[in-house]
């Protein structure tokens, strides 16, 4: 089992004819994914990825003709909000937006609109999802992960790879790895994914990697306390970040005392999450926590 994506996911790529879109669509296809098409307005009827998949003008056509249920978005920031809305209006169930740099005001509108639809959004500004050996919907390098029992939730890209790498080094594979994105407004929050992993029978432990800024980790911690029975191992990046400075991610800025790494770590620990101080200890700590569970 896994969450959100598996070998049956029928994936389309919005922006498939662009350089980023075509490169990553090819990588997803090479991973063995079911990439059933792409969408580029005005290029409908053409073929993409060396003639391997059809291109449609709209998500609506892609939904009708190839029954797509997952969309992966590589559209430039000025047009990405519209692309998400198009996918939602076509009835696509899962939309994964990789695009970085979408104006926050646009995302606030999109987020609010999506509450009235059945579409789940992952991202934007995220590396996407990876269910090892089944589906890679995004830009995570497939070879670093392997199938197993740990669910991974992270705001970051390369720090997720680091955590996954450490898990594999201690012999632990993953059910699904989800990069939720580092922007102030994102479609799916940590608590949403904790609920999915809690209900996934194959997930035995959950890694939650957060960072400074916002209060999502705190909401997630309270969710863990009340709803999660599986061990959760947490790390917060940005312990050394000065307040008031944006650390790369648009969302990674400490604008109040409770947004600092220390404040988040303290509440996470109170709520029963095993908090690691060092990013190098993530893999070993998960292994230890799982050993305790089986004893």
């Amino acid at each position: 089992m896994s969450i959100l994506v598996n070998k049956d996911s029928k994936i389309i790529v919005q922006g498939i004819t662009g350089s980023e879109g075509s490169f990553h669509a090819e990588q997803c296809l090479a991973y063995g994914n079911n990439v059933v098409g792409g969408v580029t307005p005005g290029k409908g009827g053409q073929k993409a990825l060396d003639g391997k998949v059809p291109v449609f003008n709209t998500c609506f056509e892609a939904r009708q003709q190839v029954a797509a249920n997952v969309s992966l978005i590589f559209v430039p920031p000025a047009f990405a909000a519209d692309a998400i809305l198009e996918a939602a209006d076509a009835g696509i169930e899962l939309v994964v937006c990789i695009t970085e740099g979408i104006p926050v005001a646009d995302m606030a509108k999109v987020y609010t609109y999506l509450q009235s639809t059945n579409t789940r959004l992952i991202g934007p500004n995220c590396p996407g999802l990876l269910t090892p050996d089944e589906a890679k919907v995004g830009i995570m390098p497939g070879f670093i992960a392997k199938k197993g029992s740990v669910g991974v939730i992270s705001k970051s890209g390369t720090l997720t790879y680091e955590a996954v790498h450490q898990l594999c080094q201690v012999g632990l594979g993953q059910t699904t790895c989800v990069g939720i994105g580092g922007d102030p407004v994102i479609g799916t929050k940590m608590a949403d994914l904790l609920a999915l992993f809690e209900n996934d029978p194959e997930t035995e432990a959950i890694v939650m990697i957060g960072e400074i800024g916002g209060s999502m980790e705190i909401e997630a911690a309270h969710f863990v306390k009340n709803n999660v029975t599986k061990p959760v191992i947490g790390f917060i990046a940005g312990q050394t970040a000065p307040p008031g400075r944006r650390m790369g991610h648009a969302g990674a800025i400490v604008s109040g005392a409770d947004e600092s790494a220390d404040a988040k770590k303290a509440i996470m620990a109170e709520c029963g999450i095993v908090v690691v101080d060092s990013p190098a200890d993530i893999g070993a700590t998960v292994k230890k926590s799982l050993a305790k569970v089986t004893v």
């Binding site: 720090l159 940005g238 050394t240 790369g248 790494a261 101080d277 060092s278 990013p279």
Partner: peptide, 25 residues
């Protein structure tokens, strides 16, 4: 010098944990 904002912050964090002080992000 790191690729990715999250890993860059985490790298600064571990430098500090080891007793050093990061000069930059």
């Amino acid at each position: 010098m790191v690729n990715g904002a999250g890993l860059a912050m985490a790298t600064m964090d571990i430098i500090k944990l080891k007793g050093g002080e990061p000069a930059n992000f």
